[in-house]
Structure formats: C-alpha cells, structure tokens
Simulated assay, not measured.
Amino acid sequence: MKIVHRQIFREHAKLFGLSTASLLGLIIMGRMLQLRELFLSQNLGLFDLLQLFVYLCPFFLLLIMPIACMLSVFLTFLRMSSDNEHIALKANGVSLYQLLPAPLVFGCLCTLCCYFISFYGLSWGMDNFKRTIIEYARTRSKIAIQAGVFNRDFPKLTFYAHKVDSEAGELEFVFVQDSTLKDTTVTVVAPYGRIEADAEKGEMSIAFRNGRIFRKHGDELNILQFGTYKVRLPLGRLLGGFKFDKDKPSEMSIGRLWRMHRDPPQKVLHDEGLRRKVETELVKRWALPFGCIVLGLFAFPVACAFRGLRQQYGLLLSMGLFLVYYTCFSVAVSLGETGAFSPYVGLWIPNVVFLGVGAVGVYYANQEKTLPVMTLLAYWRSWRAES
C-alpha cells in the first residue's frame, strides 16, 4: 500500500503542477490584456513584467489552488477507473477506503499552502505590486518629466522643468499650470521641486520649494509666496485607470482584517458597507482554502462513478462541478457584503454540502452502489432514448 500511495500522490502532484501552471498562465494572459494600457505607459522590460506578475500570483493562486487540487484528484482516479486499476486492486483485497490516505494527505498539504497564501502571501503580493508600479511611474513613465519639454499628459495640467534628475526625482526651475478649476488658472513657479511617491496612499505629487503661486480668476490676479507647496497628480489616469485603494479588504493582510474587525476604527464604524466587507473577507480567508480538501474528497467518488469517461470530458465535468461550487461561494460572498445573509454561515455552506456529498459518494462507491441521482439520470436518459 505504501507503493500505491506514493504512486497516487506522485500523480496528484504532477497533475496539480500542470493544472496550476495552465490556469495561472491563462489568467495572467487575460489580466495582461486588461492592464495593457498600464504597461504601455511604462518603459518596462521583460524582467520588470515578470516581477509584477510574481507579485500578482498569490492573488490568483488563492482562486486556482482549490480547482487544481480537485482536477488532480479527479483525473488521477478517472484514469485508474478507465484502466481498470480499481478492479485489479479490489481483486487483491484493496478497498477504496484504503486509497483515501493519498488524496487526503495531498488535499491537506494544498490546504495548508493555500492558508499561507491567504494569510500572508496575498497582502505581500498586492503591497509590493502597488509599490513597484508607483516606483515605475515615478522613474520610468511619462511623468518622468524630460528636461526642457512641456508635459501635457494630464488633462488641464502642464509641467515644465529646465533640469531633471530622474533617479533622485529632483527638478530645477519648475513651472506648472493648473486649469482644473473653472474660470481659474493657477500657475506655480519655483526654483526647486521634487517628484514624490507615497506607496501607502497610492499617490504621486510634485513638491515645490521657495516659489510663487499666480492665481488668476477673471480679471483678478493674486500672487502668493510659499516655502513648500504640493501638486497631487491623478495617478490613475497615468496608469491606464488602475485604482490604488488602500482600504480594499480583499488586499489586506489577515492581521489587519482581524484588527479592523475586533477594534474597528472610526471609518469602519461609520461605514456599514465597509464593515460588512471586512467581516466577509475575514471569513472568506478561512473558508476558501479549506475548499482544497473538500473538493479533493468530492472528486474522489465522482471519478469512480464516471468509469470509462474520456479525460477531456472528465476535465469539462470537473470544471463544471467547480463552477457550481464557486458560484455558490460567490453568491454567499455577495449576500454577506450586502448584509442579506451571515457570512459565517453562507461561506461555509458550499464546503459543508460538498463535503457531505463527497463522504456519501465514497460510501456508495466503496459498496459499488450507484447514487440515487445517477440512477435517476440513467432512467431519464433511457426514457429520452425510447421516446
């Protein structure tokens, strides 16, 4: 049995790696198309793109790992059923219960890995992704103002600097004209300036020193002298509409979510929608990774029930079953965020239902009995064929 378990575990690992790599590649390609304006506005090389995608991987892996675990278990036992290996093992006195340790151990390992990503990897990846994007915007994008060139990339904003140090972000003899206010033109002139990026707030600004502000409203002209003055830049326009939302619960660490839930700040107390999102996201970080072991156990009897099914059809079947699971999970998340249903109950219902069906399915498969649903399906197909 040790040899059998090792072989099953090894096949699980191979199929898991293949499924994860394939799904991750497809999702990253789709995400790349969504962020094409962001990448086109930056002077990025291949290494820079790979670095950004590494930071995005934890966010995608949290969604991919449960289905990859399900696919690996399903395809392994579907092949064993198709090759009559189950019959050969049973002829030698090996029951399906004795084959369970390998998929259970594999599902537990996937669950632990998914929990690590959920608790730590997700926030680490998104924080580094935003920080890197802001740094690229500061040093490599169009806002890296060229010396002696008028920059009009932002609507109703014009920038000019006589000398520019791109690495340090230092500017000399800076001129900015702001026409964003109706019937008012603000012109800032200063001998020194600096491009600043705040990764925590997700914003960029130009800080001027020892300059003057010329504010013209109609025929009235006001002149002000200042020591320090900042012009904040609409970074989202520069980065293809990418939003930097520091208070997005889906990108927070588990520690920050727990602190906001246990001791909510004033912003959360006065925003009922944000409070529900924090609560729902906190439950989601626990419920979704547990889906690895749930879906792995669920796939085990399903693969045995569909003996003789081709692998391409089995792949479509397992994807369809996961779609049912994820649809139920997504509906529970939406209901939890709107307050229509408790997330503590709703987000765990798909896991409990699929776990129960999987346990019953293992019992029926070991007894070589057909599930009532499968009997009804076979009866319906025969009735359709006769009619």
Rank of each mutant, 00 (worst) to 15 (best):
I213P: 01
P191Y: 01
A21E: 09
L282A: 00
G361K: 03
K163L: 09
Q98N: 00
S387L: 13
M32H: 04
P101Q: 06
W258M: 11
L89E: 06
L104W: 04
A340P: 05
L297F: 08
C328I: 09
L56S: 07
R152G: 10
L269E: 06
R232F: 15
V164I: 08
E196V: 15
F9P: 00
I206R: 02
L63S: 03
C114Y: 00
D48H: 13
L274W: 01
P289W: 10
M319D: 04
C113Q: 15
S72T: 07
E11N: 12
V176T: 10
L181V: 09
V283A: 05
W258A: 13
A199F: 05
L49G: 04
F106T: 03
L376G: 01
L355R: 03
F208S: 11
Q51R: 12
A102C: 05
Y326A: 11
Y97L: 11
V149G: 04
G227Q: 08
L269C: 01
E337F: 09
I349R: 07
C108S: 14
R79A: 10
E272W: 05
L257K: 00
D127W: 08
E203Y: 02
D127I: 08
S166K: 12
K14L: 11
Y115F: 11
V362S: 07
L377R: 10
I3S: 06
Q98H: 02
F53E: 08
S95T: 02
L100T: 00
G356L: 04
V174M: 06
D198G: 01
K130D: 13
C108A: 12
W383P: 02
S342D: 11
Y115M: 10
G236L: 02
L89D: 02
L347W: 02
R152K: 13
A197R: 04
G320L: 04
A13C: 05
R79Y: 07
A13E: 00
Y379H: 15
G193L: 02
N351Y: 06
L376H: 13
L235S: 10
I145L: 15
D198P: 07
L35R: 13
L33N: 00
A13M: 07
Q311I: 07
S253N: 03
H5P: 07
M204P: 01
G358I: 10
S318W: 05
L376P: 06
L239S: 14
I195R: 12
M260R: 08
Y136N: 03
